Amino acid sequence: MDFSLSEEQVLLRESVEKYTADHGSVERHRKLSQSDLGFDAQAWQAFAELGWLALPFAEADGGLGGSVTDLMVLCESLGKALVREPYLHCVAACGGLLSLAASEEQRATYIPALAEGSSQWAFAFAEAGSGYDFAAINAVASAADNGFSLSGSKIAVLNGHVADQLIVSALTEHGNPDSLSLFVVSADKPGVNRSSFTAVDGSRGAVIGFENVALAATDMLGEPGNGAAIIAKALDYAIIALGAESLGAMQVLLNATVEYTKTREQFGQAIGKFQALQHRMADMYLKLEETKSLLYNAAILLEEGDSAGPAACAALKVKVAEAGRLISHEAVQLHGGMGMTDELIVGHLLKRLLLLAKLYGDEDYYLERYIQLQAA
């Protein structure tokens, strides 16, 4: 299996890192996290102009036809820069759902606007008490007037505070998890209400309620009752983007820690010369390399359509949680009390890795999923 990047992917990585070097900083992160939007609208348009928003979509849908590994390269570079823009939630997750399940008419309607940066999206799937079981929900889309009437409530909808379009999971038969389906819902429809919140890492989102929201039959995404299968497949691609972003953040934490221990002196010498601290940084490096190997493996298997791809993605999600926890905690501890100050990138990346470790399912959830997939 070839883990090397192509010449085009190396150029993509260099271009993203050049942009983020000029536009990414802790100061920008703090400023945007306190804004109503939570990200820079002008930067989002720059993403569109650079082709990043169109990258993962098929050329027939107005995209650039990028591969899974192209998406990985892009997101790893974004992860190094504390980028506030909702690429993971809008393009990787919702874009993946549209690419997999949307009809030809839906793709023609929605994907060009997403790729051009004129439409924001959010995936509304979690409910209070549902844990990470996507089908253990109470939202119901009942048949009504040649369409559906959607009622229910969704929590932790990241990017939901500003989304123009929502992809919402709901049961078409109350209490029947096998009827789980997906719907595209315009956020400005009557009966949709949302309350904004700020996540642990400064990301913005919303709790969204739906009260007898009228939907057309054409608003369903994919086939009735096929929601669980669509979500599982789409989230494998989102996990590649999530894992790549996490890897980028881990690399920055390791680099910052090594550099700090070269300059911080104690007992008349740099603390990086103490063998005990060298061992701890070696452990950080080991976890980083383990994550990188699992990420590249999962991306290639998905790209090749290998049946082992879903299990590889589950293993990657477990490693992202484990490695992110160790690397971020060690980075904070080796920086001392200043590790959690608002001025340093270290504490901000710790919070981001904490959110990514829980998003779509925590370490225990994906370990169980991995075991089930291996046994199948």
Rank of each mutant, 00 (worst) to 15 (best):
W44Q: 09
I231W: 12
E127I: 03
V213H: 09
E85V: 10
I167G: 15
S179L: 03
V213F: 06
C90P: 02
L349E: 02
H161K: 06
V140D: 04
F3D: 12
A136F: 14
A41N: 03
A244C: 05
G96H: 12
G361H: 08
T69H: 15
R194I: 12
N159C: 10
A199W: 13
G38F: 05
L326W: 05
G361R: 08
R28Y: 01
A41W: 02
L349W: 00
V184M: 02
F39H: 10
L350V: 13
D306F: 11
N226L: 09
Q275F: 15
S99V: 05
G96S: 12
T20M: 14
V207L: 15
Q333A: 14
L367M: 12
L97S: 11
G347C: 14
Q251H: 13
K292I: 03
R352S: 14
Q275G: 14
F57A: 04
H329E: 13
A314R: 00
N297Y: 00
D70R: 02
F47R: 09
T172W: 08
V320Y: 09
A232H: 07
Q34C: 13
E290Q: 10
L302I: 00
D36R: 15
A58Q: 10
L71R: 01
L82H: 08
E14H: 13
D364F: 07
H279D: 15
V346L: 00
A312D: 07
A229L: 06
E223Y: 02
S118D: 11
R325E: 04
G191Y: 02
E289G: 03
H329C: 09
Q275I: 15
Y132R: 02
G191T: 09
Y370V: 01
R369D: 11
G361D: 09
K358W: 00
E259G: 05
A244D: 08
A323L: 05
A48V: 05
E223V: 03
V162D: 04
L97H: 14
T341W: 12
M220I: 13
A216I: 11
N146I: 08
L367Q: 13
T109D: 03
M1E: 05
L367G: 08
A270Q: 11
L349K: 01
L295H: 08
G175Y: 08
G268H: 02
I327C: 06
H23S: 08
F125L: 11
V184L: 12
A238T: 05
A244T: 04
L349G: 02
L373C: 03
M220C: 04
G65Y: 14
E116D: 12
G152W: 11
G272N: 03
E8N: 09
Y370S: 01
L215S: 07
E322R: 10
G62S: 00
G79L: 04
G63V: 04
G62L: 07
A48G: 06
L11H: 15
L221G: 00
D306W: 06
G63R: 13
G79E: 05
